[in-house]
Nucleic acid binder design. Structure first.
Lengths: 144, 144
DNA sequence: TTTATTTCGGATAAATATATCCTATTTATA
DNA sequence: TATAAATAGGATATATTTATCCGAAATAAA
């Protein structure tokens, strides 16, 4: 469904959100340890998310990654997915046709449309705040 | 969502189904032309579908690919997807956790579950017969 | 100002997915 | 039986994704 990079990116963002709420900046080392992902690769993805204004980085000693406390609830999953995988997952054709729409549909078009829309709605209505809360409460996990 | 191989595989299967209904066997050359896919690569995927008993091949002169007329309506999209991509798309965790279930859920687990289930239902209740009908009636397309 | 720590970014490697090429094997028909 | 046409399958090439390594730049604190 999502690329590895995107999976790591979402998990990392949730972990950063949880720690930012507690006022803690985190490093790629700590992130990759807590979400069980390759460190250097995860660092690249984090830089990507910084460039897309999903998270913030602070360079130099005592630096790390963080998210402004008051924006955590405004960051939607769709922003992370679009930053890393683009929006093809919920805008492209399920059978890979370049042009697929009501006027020129692929055979799966109608059946696929509702699933794609549900996926888009879910990504656009889920924010980092609620996901981070699940982790904090110990109801959900970021690894294993 | 699906791999290129899987997209080609579904489109090819629909094209074969449409032609088999009309009693015509088709070659990889004709298939790849009609679904706009790379010929040799498509041929590999067809062999895969033969091994998984989704389609049938007839070797030698006047051979080609076909589907028994009476089984066309029984072949579900899920069979094609599983043959090529496996069932990870609607059984795995959205965030890539090896173990993700009610007892040990990822933060997206509940929200993702319904979408995954809808996708699985769609793939399991859609058969080649109905998809081929759309093509035959000119209501749907396999390329562009 | 020096040092230790940390992100940034380029280069490279490894793994996987996608695509092509060529030959062997099969088989209907002349 | 010979031939032509077709799938089967191995070898290889290319592109993309995933992953690692290393040095440069930034920065807080000693």
């Amino acid at each position: 469904m999502f690329s590895k990079a995107c999976e790591y990116g979402i998990r990392a963002s949730i972990f950063i959100a949880k720690n930012s709420r507690e006022g803690r900046r985190v490093s790629p080392r700590e992130i990759s340890k807590e979400i069980d992902s390759p460190q250097a690769f995860t660092a690249k993805i984090l830089q990507d998310l910084v460039r897309h204004d999903v998270i913030k980085s602070v360079q130099g000693a005592y630096g790390g990654f963080e998210i402004d406390k008051d924006t955590i609830a405004t960051i939607k999953l769709s922003q992370i997915v679009e930053a890393i995988d683009g929006n093809g997952i919920y805008s492209g054709c399920g059978l890979g046709l370049r042009e697929c729409n009501e006027q020129h549909p692929c055979p799966m078009h109608d059946k696929f449309k509702s699933i794609r829309n549900d996926l888009r709605d879910m990504l656009e209505t889920t924010n980092l705040e609620e996901l981070a809360t699940g982790i904090k409460n110990g109801e959900a996990f970021l690894k294993v």
